[in-house]
Design a binder for these strands. Structure first.
Lengths: 227, 227
DNA sequence: CGGGTGCTTGATACCGATCAACCCACGTGG
DNA sequence: CCACGTGGGTTGATCGGTATCAAGCACCCG
């Protein structure tokens, strides 16, 4: 499972389409690929633990990874959910010593792995690597601040509506979404208990939201924006 | 009030001691100082509004700035509170078009102001500017994820205890802290209503925390860590 | 002394976590 | 083919924490 490998061609093409690679020039690209490795994890495997010595950051190639902290006696709270293309633990580029949270595979995942130290020096040598890191960190920071704001001023149904609206391309009329992961993961992503998500969905029924399994029908996108 | 000026010598020395400047080499330093400007705001002035065209980011030289969003009908929720040395709106370095929240002076403040576009190009030319931006963004991202985690798994008294412990140097025994700003600001920083902060303090009385005005006495630091 | 402002305190309402039971889909093995 | 177990999801009842609204208090400064 966590055998470390050089990239095979399929993983390589997946990685190249990732936001952390698309804007690199040819030399930076090869140098980055040079230090990239691939690790696979099965569902529920831990990628790393909070407090562990931090040597790598990761980019999701397929599957989903859950970042969380422990409260008391096995209770845990999600901080973030990462899907394909997402990068995590890159906030340790500044020089953090240890991981700040646990990372767990929510299903079978394959990750690209980069040594923090090597990327640090690479960023100091290749300006487009540095630029890419700045863009990554900026975007990640923006979305994290968005999470803080939403946590602090939206109720459960509002968060769900917000998520749905940001994940359907249609501007108005009806839309259909297939969740890429389990509902319990979505609950964690939104900072809710699974039961609360369930109730939020049933509260949104009268706003035209129908749920069957992972498929969500929205009868009127405009109406959903009012919530 | 919001007259734009070149730096005077006092502001200049303040800025130079700021984390965003300390690790720059001589040429980067002068180039950054070259594009820096100073703005002053009186208490309750808006530095910028959510949705406004974003052209600058800021570094606090003195005073405190509140970043917040509006909910409904004048109700507002704080996202972050910035003090001396803190940088804000730097997450737009990736190329964001507009500000994502309102920024308001919580008291009389003086800010250093940088054009996003100029810093972007500067970062692509001077590797230590890029490195500094990476460090800034990394640290900011780490602390923001910390906020998400704390919001999601700590109660009000725990957040206050956490804040106190991270703001007193003493490891054990007793300690004393003077809040650098109003309690209502602290409440916002911790994601609480002012009343909730007040109640949290009185709940912490039996953990040896005494509050008189802005001065907070902690009789037993070790005991506070248990909360 | 009067009037602000910031803070505290009390009463109430609401939201979401928690615990428990149940349902359903699925896979397994007798 | 059916009994059984498992895991994900829903639903209901209850509890706790915090927001909200309202009133009162302490302090500062005119």
């Amino acid at each position: 499972m966590n055998k470390i490998l050089k990239l095979n061609t399929r993983d390589r093409t997946t990685l190249l389409k990732t936001p952390m690679m698309t804007s690199l020039g040819p030399t930076s690209l090869t140098r980055m690929l040079d230090i990239a490795a691939v690790t696979n994890f099965e569902s529920r495997d831990l990628v790393f633990r909070e407090g562990e010595q931090a040597e790598h950051f990761f980019c999701v190639l397929s599957g989903y990874v859950r970042l969380f902290r422990l409260i008391k006696e096995g209770r845990e709270a999600d901080i973030r959910v990462c899907g394909p293309g997402d990068v995590f633990a890159e906030c340790l580029l500044a020089g953090g010593e240890t991981y700040l949270y646990h990372a767990q595979a929510a299903e079978n995942v394959t990750l690209a792995r980069f040594e923090l130290a090597k990327v640090r020096t690479l960023a100091s040598q290749e300006s487009d690597v540095a630029r890419t890191m700045i863009v990554l960190l900026s975007n990640h920071l923006m979305s994290t601040m968005e999470v803080v704001a939403n946590d602090r001023l939206q109720t459960a149904p509002q968060r769900v509506a917000h998520y749905l609206l940001h994940n359907c391309q249609d501007e108005n009329g009806s839309a259909s979404i297939r969740l890429p992961f389990q509902k319990s993961l979505l609950a964690g992503k939104l900072g809710l208990a699974p039961e609360a998500l369930s109730r939020a969905f049933s509260a949104l029924r009268r706003a035209g939201v129908t749920v069957r399994g992972r498929v969500i029908q929205i009868s009127d996108v405009g109406a959903l924006k009012q919530v």
